[in-house]
Amino acid sequence: MNLQEEMAALVKEYKSSGLTQKSFSARKGIGYPKFNYWYRKLAGEQVREPTGFLPVRTQGSSVPAEAVEVVYPNGVKLRVPSEDLSLLSNLIRLY
């Protein structure tokens, strides 16, 4: 069995294990970066888990919003007046 076949078998086992990639790779004695590389390679880069912020698309509204609210992953809520979106942009970059 070559390395690609071996890693494909491990990725298949991981998917049914219910473990995180870090836990699974530790149990199998494989470095997490190596396992993650093979997981992404074999999945064709389509199984990327989101980290951080995701793009948001808005549609035009006839009623302007008074404020924009952003909820950070740690639960902190941030309300910024909608006319000052540059401030919002700068605050997001701080996180």
Results as ranks from 00 to 15, higher is better:
residue 50 P to E: 01
residue 55 P to C: 04
residue 65 A to C: 11
residue 29 G to F: 04
residue 62 S to F: 11
residue 37 Y to C: 02
residue 34 K to E: 09
residue 22 K to W: 05
residue 1 M to L: 10
residue 45 E to F: 04
residue 13 E to Y: 03
residue 72 Y to L: 12
residue 95 Y to D: 14
residue 50 P to M: 03
residue 63 V to M: 14
residue 73 P to L: 11
residue 64 P to V: 06
residue 43 A to P: 00
residue 84 D to R: 11
residue 85 L to M: 12
residue 59 Q to T: 14
residue 81 P to G: 10
residue 6 E to H: 14
residue 51 T to P: 04
residue 58 T to C: 14
residue 27 R to P: 04
residue 17 S to F: 00
residue 78 L to R: 14
residue 38 W to Y: 09
residue 61 S to L: 10
residue 31 G to Q: 12
residue 57 R to M: 11
residue 73 P to K: 12
residue 15 K to S: 12
residue 52 G to D: 02
residue 25 S to R: 01
residue 90 N to D: 13
residue 53 F to M: 04
residue 44 G to Q: 03
residue 69 E to D: 07
residue 85 L to G: 07
residue 38 W to M: 03
residue 56 V to W: 08
residue 25 S to L: 03
residue 42 L to K: 00
residue 25 S to D: 02
residue 22 K to A: 13
residue 20 T to M: 06
residue 78 L to F: 04
residue 90 N to S: 15
residue 56 V to Y: 11
residue 2 N to K: 07
residue 11 V to S: 06
residue 70 V to F: 05
residue 3 L to I: 11
residue 40 R to C: 07
residue 44 G to L: 02
residue 90 N to A: 15
residue 22 K to L: 07
residue 35 F to H: 01
residue 37 Y to S: 04
residue 87 L to Q: 10
residue 47 V to S: 15
residue 75 G to R: 00
residue 18 G to Q: 02
residue 37 Y to P: 01
residue 22 K to P: 01
residue 85 L to S: 09
residue 86 S to I: 07
residue 52 G to V: 06
residue 82 S to W: 03
residue 77 K to E: 14
residue 63 V to R: 15
residue 50 P to G: 03
residue 67 A to P: 00
residue 84 D to I: 01
residue 46 Q to H: 08
residue 58 T to A: 14
residue 76 V to N: 15
residue 58 T to G: 14
residue 95 Y to G: 10
residue 54 L to Y: 08
residue 22 K to S: 12
residue 40 R to D: 04
residue 64 P to N: 07
residue 75 G to H: 05
residue 61 S to R: 14
residue 28 K to H: 09
residue 92 I to S: 03
residue 6 E to P: 01
residue 71 V to Q: 11
residue 21 Q to D: 07
residue 15 K to F: 07
residue 93 R to G: 13
residue 50 P to T: 05
residue 46 Q to W: 02
residue 55 P to E: 04
residue 33 P to C: 08
residue 7 M to T: 02
residue 71 V to W: 07
residue 40 R to Q: 11
residue 66 E to T: 11
residue 89 S to M: 10
residue 10 L to N: 07
residue 71 V to T: 15
residue 32 Y to P: 08
residue 72 Y to I: 01
residue 58 T to D: 10
residue 25 S to I: 02
residue 25 S to W: 01
residue 41 K to V: 02
residue 86 S to H: 09
residue 57 R to N: 13
residue 76 V to S: 13
residue 8 A to Y: 06
residue 80 V to G: 07
residue 55 P to Q: 03
residue 45 E to R: 05
residue 18 G to P: 00
residue 87 L to C: 08
residue 87 L to P: 01
residue 85 L to Q: 06
residue 49 E to M: 08
residue 68 V to D: 04
residue 34 K to Y: 11
residue 36 N to P: 00
residue 64 P to I: 04
residue 55 P to W: 05
residue 51 T to V: 13
residue 49 E to Y: 06
residue 60 G to S: 15
residue 44 G to F: 01
residue 36 N to F: 06
residue 25 S to H: 00
residue 90 N to T: 12
residue 89 S to P: 02
residue 43 A to Y: 00
residue 17 S to R: 00
residue 73 P to Q: 08
residue 82 S to H: 03
residue 42 L to A: 02
residue 82 S to R: 05
residue 4 Q to A: 12
residue 79 R to L: 08
residue 74 N to D: 15
residue 84 D to M: 06
residue 46 Q to C: 05
residue 48 R to T: 09
residue 54 L to G: 09
